[in-house]
Every structure is written in C-alpha cells, then in structure tokens.
Design a protein around this nucleic acid. Structure first.
Lengths: 205, 205
DNA sequence: CTGAATTTTGACTCAATGGTCAATGAATCA
DNA sequence: TGATTCATTGACCATTGAGTCAAAATTCAG
C-alpha cells in the first residue's frame, strides 16, 4: 500500500487523478450517491486499481474533506482587526465569493456534508470553526462598539456572508435558470453584495 | 393499485405516513442515499406494503417534490407592488425565514435537489420560478427607479433573501455549532436581516 | 539484462437494495 | 354469512456496489 506521501511519479499522478475525479463525483452526488465505479472511470483507472491507492471509499472522501475546512477558513483568518472595518468585511466577502466562483465543487461537497448533518466534520466545526468565528466576531463586535460600523450581530453578519456567497456555487443551476443567458452571476453578485454591506454597515446607518 | 386520490381511511393514513417518513429520510440522505427500508421502517410499514401505495422510490420522491416549489414561491407571490417597498421586502424575508424555521426538511430536500443539479425540477424552474421572479424583480426595479428604495439589483436582492433565510435551515448544524447553546438562531436572524435590509435599502443610502 | 518492487487487473465474494408475487389476513357490503 | 375487494407480508430475484486476492504486467535499480 502506498504511503500517505506519494513517492513515485505514478503514485503522485494517480492519487491526484483519483481525488480530482472523486471531488467531481462526490460533490455532485453526495457520499452515498457516489460510486467507486464512477470515480474509477472518471480517473481512468479500474476499481481495484483505485483501491490500491486508497483503502476505501471513506478514505477518499476523508482525504477530500480534510483540506476543505482549512481553505474555507483562510479568508476569514485574513480579516484584520487593524484594518478599516468596512474594507475588511468587504474584502472577506469578496474572497469568499471568489472561492465560490473558483471552487464550486468544493463548495458543494461541503454543502452536501452540512445537509447530511455534518457527520464527518462535526468535530472540526466545534474545534476549529467555532473558535475562529468567535475570535473574528469579537473583532467585528469591537468595531461596532467603537461606532466604526453600524450595530449588527457579528455572528449573523458572518453567516450572511457565507450564505450569500456560497449560494452562487451551491444553487448555481437555480441562479442561472432565473437569470437566463447573458449574465455573469459572480460579477453581478460582487457588485450587489458590495452595495448591500456598504449601505448596511456604514456608521450612523 | 390505489388511485392518486386516496379513497379509504387506511390509504389516506398510510400514504401520509409514507410521505412524512420519506421527507425525513430524503431530506437527510438525498435521493440515492435514502433506502426504501428506512422509509418503510419510519412509516411503520413493511417494504412490500409501502410499494403497494407507491409504485417506486422515484414516485415517492416525485410526489414530495411536486408540491414543494409552490409552497416555496407563495411568499414571493404575496409581494405587493402597491405596498410600502421596504415593508414588502422585509415581509417577504420574514415569510421566507418562517418557512425555513417551520419546514427545514422541505428546505433541505430542495437544497439536495439543487446540489444534484436539479435534474427533477429544472423544467419547473424555467417555467414557473423564472417568470415569477422576473415579475417581482420588475416591481422592485420600479421602486428603485422611483427612488423609493436605494438602487440595487432586484434579482440579486431576491437571491440574497433566499440564501440568507435558507441558510438557517440547510446549514443548521453549522449555525448551531458556531453559536453554541443558548441561542435562538431564527429569532436572531430575523433581527439581523431586518437591520441588514433596512440599512441597505433605505433611500439615499 | 535480470531480479525485485511496484502497478494493474480479471475474477471473485458478500451485503444491500429496489422491486415482484403468490398467498394470507382484514374489511366491507349485499 | 358469504363473497368480494382491500391490505399485508414472507419469500424471492436481479442488480449494484464495496472490497479482496492472486496472478499478470510493468517499471526500475543495479
């Protein structure tokens, strides 16, 4: 069995192909909806060969999920208490929206996990997500207290940024069905959300 | 085989029990993740008995989906061009949030469907959702043009209401994990979203 | 070039799952 | 009460899907 760190070129290449294929399939069908055959086919491997690289379906999924939360949280980590409040929050929104645009499959994988009740990430939510969000919510809370932005609940402000940005990845079909052709949902979303938060957060609102 | 309209008391009762159980299971596990055994068990029936009432797993799911879009769109239909702009939009947000609170399983069922690429509702999105949204977007657009609310993209305003309200049903686990105990997410959300849209939509923003 | 290590696969197993069916057990109604 | 329809189920079946394994093919180091 190959080690965690792929050693040979072949292992490197095939592991990547498997994860890429698995991301595609899991994000679209959910964990139970995905089959190893689908993943193997998309990766250009036979099923037994796929199982030579990963011990189980669970393992592939776990590997995919592992990095996910980190990437998802990075933009929030970058929110700087020393910066300009509105600019920081808008910057966070923008980075999150870019994630949705550039990694929609990752977003859907995560959404699937949440819908299923987060059985495989609940721990991580408690141990990593909550502390970070609490920390940044405190930063925002301080801005509010100092009168530098309008009074809002920091936690729910963060939720609203998550919700609005991820919506464009997770509900992509719906968004496009409603807008019709000739639209760039993400570009429009950036303009709209900038206006939304600017209007709402400016002090003395 | 029983007709569409249940005739006897027994058919009435069992059909309902099946749909109720199926909603529970489908919304949590997705279509492929759900099994007839799970549904049958939850409905208190044997699997063959369940299949006496519905011809297939597909049929149960279809029946569930059928009514869904209507219920989902009702709050938007109620948005009144003759009313006060801000009050109408806030009212819509509030009704949508109540749906999320009172029917989270329906919300998740719908979200599952969207994540999967909406294979079973794409037609309905085109034929029913889009026209209605376009109509109401035009109403909001007229309010903007009249200077009665701040200039915003009506379609994306509606998207943001969908996103923020459904988030509390679909990502319930995450919301609760982050907030910790002692919170009423929906009550807090109502306050936050009211402030968000009031601050952002008030004219001369 | 040769032997060892790595990679690939055909042929399996075993459990789960959607669905069928004939037979049995209730209701119901004349 | 007896005949007829409705409801329920145990025993199946076919397929799919996760995972195994020994053997074959390929790669690679010396």
């Amino acid at each position: 069995m190959p080690d965690r760190r792929p050693k040979t070129r072949i292992q490197q290449k095939n592991s990547e192909a498997i994860l890429e294929a698995a991301l595609e399939v899991f994000s679209q069908a959910g964990f139970r909806g995905a089959t190893l055959d689908q993943i193997a086919e998309r990766a250009g491997l036979s099923k037994p060969n796929l199982l030579y690289y990963f011990p189980s379906k669970e393992a592939i999924h776990a590997e995919l999920i592992k990095g996910l939360l980190q990437v998802w949280l990075d933009p929030l980590r970058a929110l700087d208490a020393a910066g300009d409040p509105l600019a920081e929050i808008l910057g966070y929104m923008r980075r999150k929206l870019e994630l949705s645009r550039d990694f929609p499959r990752e977003s859907r994988l995560f959404a699937n996990e949440m819908l299923q009740g987060a059985p495989r990430v609940e721990r991580a939510l408690q141990d990593e997500l909550k502390p970070l969000v609490d920390e940044k919510a405190a930063v925002i809370g301080a801005w509010v207290k100092a009168g530098r932005i309008a009074p809002v609940d920091p936690h729910h402000l963060i939720f609203s940024i998550w919700a609005t940005t991820q919506h464009y990845a997770d509900f992509d079909v719906q968004v496009r069905a409603v807008l019709g052709p000739g639209h760039d949902p993400f570009a429009e979303a950036e303009r709209f959300l900038t206006a939304l938060y600017t209007g709402s957060l400016s002090p003395r609102g």
